[in-house]
């Protein structure tokens, strides 16, 4: 439970290489034109996988006390709530767009 997990150099390089690979895949996937909503879904999906890898193995959430993981997950939950409630307004306006 203690926060002193020491990863081996080999493991850290493995995590880094996986992230480089996923970055390449995100770019490569734009070369084949995926139809409209799915290109966003795939791009965000890969970004989420990368974010999970970074937080679990670089930020050590995988070995850390569950409390820190809970803080992180809750911040995402509140962020999604923020998006959801905002969209409930902006998506359904009859006289929509403010000018600036």
């Amino acid at each position: 439970m203690s926060g002193h997990h020491i990863s081996s150099a080999k493991f850290l390089w493995g995590v880094g290489t996986t992230l480089f690979l996923l970055t390449f895949i995100t770019v490569a996937i734009t070369w084949i034109a995926i139809p409209a909503p799915w290109n966003v879904v795939v791009a965000i999906g890969i970004a989420v996988v990368k974010a999970i890898i970074v937080s679990a193995f670089f930020m050590n959430l995988y070995w850390d006390t569950k409390f820190h993981a809970m803080l992180f997950v809750l911040s995402i939950v509140f962020f999604l709530l923020f998006i959801g409630i905002t969209l409930l307004d902006t998506l359904y306006r009859t006289d929509p767009i403010p000018t600036f």
């Binding site: 850290l12 995590v15 880094g16 992230l19 480089f20 970055t23 670089f58």
Partner: peptide, 8 residues
């Protein structure tokens, strides 16, 4: 990502 690796 490389810099994250070096920080780790």
């Amino acid at each position: 990502i490389g810099s994250s690796l070096t920080v780790a």
